[in-house]
Write a protein that binds this DNA or RNA. Structure first.
Length: 155
DNA sequence: GCCAACGTTGGC
DNA sequence: GCCAACGTTGGC
């Protein structure tokens, strides 16, 4: 089991959307490093920290998990999709994704500020300056700590 | 909405 | 395969 952090802009797709949908294909990732993490690293059951970016208070707002094997991103084949990529074909797909399933929405989000303030979270990728990856791995030690924080956030 | 940093593109 | 230009990201 591996921990991951998935970034999303809530105006596009939020934790409430995931709660409503239950599961969703994490489509539209068009960055090779992020793709590699999904295609080569993700396994069913991996835990996901669901992060809202580009908002007044960036924060981990929910917990989710990976609920499918990696598979080609169908939006890359769809000419009407804004994620269409003519270089990705069904024979040689370029973009991959996994399905993500809702677990919980945190009663109190773990803000970026709170993550930064925690001395045990040094080296957490999302804290690195100008870290733009929308899919990033989280070390077990850090993930365990964030999970523990999420439990406190419930009370 | 600013802007630094990063990824991608494409001419050479 | 270099590298300048361009677009995007995302915290502030």
């Amino acid at each position: 089991m591996q921990y991951w952090l998935l970034k999303t802009e809530p105006r596009g797709y939020s934790i409430d959307d995931l709660k409503r949908d239950g599961c969703t294909p994490w489509s539209g990732v068009r960055n090779y490093q992020a793709r590699n993490f999904m295609r080569d690293g993700m396994q069913v059951g991996d835990r996901v920290f669901f992060y809202h970016s580009n908002v007044a208070e960036p924060a981990i707002v929910g917990l989710a998990h990976v609920c499918s094997e990696p598979y080609p991103d169908p939006t890359a084949f769809d000419v009407r999709s804004k994620y269409y990529d003519e270089k990705s074909t069904r024979d040689k797909p370029r973009w991959f994704l996994v399905d993500v399933c809702f677990d919980t929405k945190l009663a109190r989000p773990i803000t970026l500020k709170a993550l930064r303030a925690d001395p045990t979270l040094g080296g957490l990728l999302v804290l690195a300056p100008h870290q733009r990856l929308s899919v990033m791995p989280v070390e077990k030690m850090h993930g365990d700590r964030i999970e523990a924080m999420s439990h406190t956030m419930h009370s």
